[in-house]
Every structure is written in C-alpha cells, then in structure tokens.
Design a binder for these strands. Structure first.
Lengths: 200, 200
DNA sequence: AGCCGCGGAATGAACGTTCATTCCGCGAGG
DNA sequence: CCTCGCGGAATGAACGTTCATTCCGCGGCT
C-alpha cells in the first residue's frame, strides 16, 4: 500500500495549513507559558513542523505573536458585533454583549487566555494596538447612545467598558484559579449584577 | 586618593539592604517585562549589586520571584485588613476596601502591576498560592456577613469578589492603556457603580 | 593579619534564527 | 502509463547570542 496521502503530520497537526498549525500551537503555548517562556522550536514541535518552517511563515517570533494577537483580537471584535440587535432595548443589547463575550471565552478559551496575558505587552506592534482601539469604537458608541436615552449612568464610556469587561475577566480568572465554576446560573447572576452597576 | 567611601551603589540603590534593593529592582523589571523577559544580571545592575550577589540572597531566579510575590501579596493583604471598621455599616466597609485597594495600587503601582502580571503563573510555588487564599478568607467572611444582614445580594462570595476586584483591575488597566485617568471623581463613581452591582 | 562577603568575568545550557540539504508532487517526454 | 527531473516547501543541525548560575580574587572590617 502506498503512502500517497498525508505526506505531512509526523507529530501532531498540519491537517490544516502549516501556517494555521503554527498559530494554533503558538496560541496554546503562549497562553500557558507566556511569550518569553515559550521556545520557538517547541512551537514548531507542537505544530508538527520543523523549526525552520516557522520562519517560512513568520519573519520572527515577534511577528508570530503579533499575527496571533491580531488574528484573535479581530475575531473577538467580530464576535461582539456580528448580529448586534440595533433595534432592541438597551437591556437586551447589554445581555447580547455579555453573552457574546462568554461565548468567545468558552469556545476559544486558549485564545481568550492568550489575549488577556498579552494585553499591552511591549512586543505588540502598532497594528496590534490600533486593532484594540478599533474594536472599542462601536462599543463606546453603544454606551453613549444608551446614556443619551437615559438608560445608563452618565459615566465616561471608558469607565463603563473597563468596569464591565474587568468584571468579566475577574470571573474568568476566578474560574481558572478554581475558586468558582462558571455555570449558566453564575454567569446570569453576574450579568444581572454588572447591569445594576451601569444602569441608571 | 583612595576610594574609601561608598564601596557599594556604583549605579543605583543599596542605601537599603542589598536584599531589599534586589527585591525592588526585580519588582520594577518583572512588572515591566515579565519574569522570563527579565535577565538576572539586569536585576543586579538596577539594584546596584553584582550578579553573584543576587544568589547570595536568593537560591534561584524562581526563588526570587516567589519571595517578591509573597512580600507584596502579604503587604497587600495587610493593607486591606489593617484598620478595618468592624462596627461600621456595610456600605462604609465596602468603601473602606475600595479605598484601600486604590491606596495600595497608587502607592505601590509597580508592585500592583507585578502582582497582576504574575497572578497564577507556573513558577509560583505552593506557599505563594496558599498566601492568596489566606488573604481572601477574611474578605469572604465579610461578604457572607453582609449577606446574612440582608445588605448584599445572595451570590457566591467568590463571585462577588471576582466582580469587584475584576472591575477595579479593569480600571487600572484602562488607565495603564491611557484610556482613562483615575481621578478621585472617577474612582468614586466607579466605587458607587460597583456597589450597585453587589448591593441588594 | 585573617576572614567574610561582594563583584563581575567565566561557564555551559538554551535560545532565536539561518541555511545547506532533503523531500515531494507535478508535468514533460518517452 | 511510467520515468525522470525540476521547483519550491520543509527540515533540523549548527551558529552566534544571551541567559541563569558559578567561582574566585579583591577589599573592608575586626
């Protein structure tokens, strides 16, 4: 029998493209051990490619971490805005955001951990930083709209975002630490509490 | 002319003990660049001691980061509990906590950043992890007391802690990112909002 | 004078990165 | 339909660098 198919995948992935396999492996390792704590050859091994192959797809380790950051940050931003119920009441719009954040953190928990850990790191480039602000834009607009219609407290939009997202991250971290199980009931109760924080 | 005076401090600190100078330098560098991103000789240089001297006071780089973590985590815990107004209304007790967290984050901003960044890292040892739980204990008791007296929502105490502390960290991170200035007015407004999240 | 403790060059391991080489699918020629 | 050889992707040993850690000579104190 000939070994015609699958000339690749000696160790793990690479069913997908080598580039994606490298991004996936890097996400897993960077999320666990951090950027400086992860050796490039280890990324390559987990991806099922040779060490040199990493440099065929990315100019450097820094370029890799930035590509990964941008890949997931953009997906996160899209998750938040796709299907946003522009016509619904503010209360429902807030629930929508909360559930979308939860959905992302659940479906892509490694990526969420990676994004959290690499938030504003020194090795993130200008494009990575710009992306963050672009994502915040529509959310800021939502908050200011809701304030104009008298539903939310009149606080700086940046403060509202920091409180809400910070609270969510606090939950996720508590669950990582094993202090708290993020059951649907807990998530709902948290959502209701955070709503109380920002509603007028 | 003899170089009799100042055998130490060729570059910076060491007015204090060498051990403390090393801890201070490590705090600054670990907070900025992370554990793996910081070279031990760099810590030594900033502390104003030789590279070998670091190993006179700490067995290894890991021992250093754990000593540093424990040093500041314990101080943070003490800051929260020292002078706690056991007889005051819950509303005032909550404000006390909030202000103490703020006081710590302001007075020891590097240490706060360090503690945040090294939260639950792989190189933290059992003692470092135990310390975290010990600090949470009295706060959990406060929350459950306040729930029994009907002032706070009946949520798992761990959820309340995660929301409140997470929200605060969200604020601090937003200010680090330059999105928000943590003026007394902003801090007060945030405190009031977070109180609304947890009060019944 | 002797000793203690420090400094910083020395050390070997591990890192990010490179590059000479191998590998493989494909199309041309038989 | 098979064979051959081309081109580009992948490889991983090897390179120079940087790291954590060690070690030893020097200088200040008693």
């Amino acid at each position: 029998m000939r070994a015609a198919r699958r000339r690749t995948a000696p160790r793990k992935r690479v069913e997908e493209s080598p580039r994606q396999a490298i991004l996936d492996a890097a996400c897993e390792l960077f999320a666990d051990r951090g950027f400086h704590g992860t050796a490039v050859p280890l990324v390559a091994e987990l991806a099922g490619v040779g060490a040199g192959t990493v440099y065929r797809y990315f100019d450097s380790k820094e370029a890799l971490v930035n590509a990964l950051y941008q890949f997931w940050k953009e997906r996160f931003g899209r998750t938040l805005m796709d299907g946003f119920p522009f016509q619904a009441p503010v209360r429902d719009q807030f629930r929508f955001f909360w559930q979308k954040i939860d959905e992302f953190a659940r479906k892509h928990s490694r990526a969420f951990a990676f994004l959290e850990l690499h938030h504003h790191s020194a090795y993130l480039d200008a494009k990575s930083r710009r992306l963050e602000i672009e994502i915040l834009g529509p959310i800021k607009a939502f908050i200011e709209d809701a304030q104009r219609s008298g539903v939310l407290k009149e606080l700086p939009a940046e403060l509202v975002m920091a409180l809400v997202y910070g609270a969510f991250v606090g939950l996720v971290r508590a669950s990582w630490a094993g202090y708290l199980a993020l059951t649907p009931e807990v998530l709902d109760a948290a959502e209701a509490s955070v709503w109380d924080a920002i509603r007028r």
